[in-house]
Simulated scan of single mutants.
Amino acid sequence: MNRFKASLLHLFGSVCVVLLVFLLVRLVWYPGRFFEAASGTELMLILTLVDVVLGPLVTLIIFSPAKPSLKFDLTVVVVVQVGFLMYGLWSIYSARPVYIPFDEDRFYLVTANEIDPEDMKKAKNPAFQSFPHFGPTIVGTALPDAPDMREKIKVGGMVGMGIQVLPQYYVPYGQAAASVKAAAVRARELKGEIITSDEDIARLSDYEAKKREGGRAVRFVRLVSKKVMLYVAIDEMTGAVVEIL
């Protein structure tokens, strides 16, 4: 076997492994539009460049059938590549979306690395003492009764550290459905929002019309993320989540 065949074989194996990782990330940890909203694209690109490009490239450079230490060298390359893969996989897992809490008039996309483990320990509801592993969970929030804590949370919200990243104040979505329903608006009512593009309004209006034709009225609530603005379609009658767009 020459170096080119060895490199191609290494490339094929690397592509198969990264493809399996991509399916796990895309379908389980970052489903739907969360792949774009939570920087899944960038993280997968980095992992792909390291494991699919660099590994086979190193094999192409060092491979020589007459080299006495060839097996050892290739073993080192594979071990290092697997190490990078595990590190990249852990980085993607640690930054995955875990919760979609509702507060006041909007939802927030919260990733695992935004929540302090100490805050999770304070959660009274056992469901919020650990992260979901298969996609984010939609929840409500409830401010504490103490005025000083309420003020502290509001101040923290000004710098992105508000109630949305405090699991001790999460409540099951059913307890917040009425508030979500009250905050939901029609697509055309989003037009006054600077962060809502004309393209989004047109897309949501089409979605609203199709649902209406099917006998279901929906309204929308903004879902704030660091990358893009998403929208949660809400059943007008029940407040139940229909879809994230």
Rank of each mutant, 00 (worst) to 15 (best):
M1N: 11
N2K: 08
N2Q: 03
R3I: 00
A6E: 07
S7H: 08
L11G: 09
G13V: 02
G13M: 08
V15F: 13
F22R: 01
L24R: 02
V25P: 07
R26V: 03
Y30L: 14
R33D: 11
F34H: 01
A38Y: 01
S39T: 04
T41C: 00
L45N: 08
V50M: 14
V52C: 14
G55S: 10
P56Y: 02
P56I: 04
L57E: 10
S64N: 15
P68G: 12
P68E: 11
L74D: 08
V77I: 15
V77D: 13
V77P: 11
G83M: 10
L89A: 11
Y93P: 07
Y99M: 06
P101Q: 02
D103W: 06
A112I: 11
P117N: 06
F134K: 10
V139R: 01
V139W: 04
D145P: 00
E151V: 10
K154R: 08
G157A: 14
V159A: 06
V159G: 01
V159P: 01
M161W: 00
Q164H: 14
P167Q: 05
A182W: 06
A183D: 00
V185A: 09
I195H: 15
D198T: 02
D198W: 02
E199N: 05
R203N: 03
K211M: 15
V218A: 12
R219T: 15
V224W: 10
V224H: 12
A233D: 10
G239R: 13
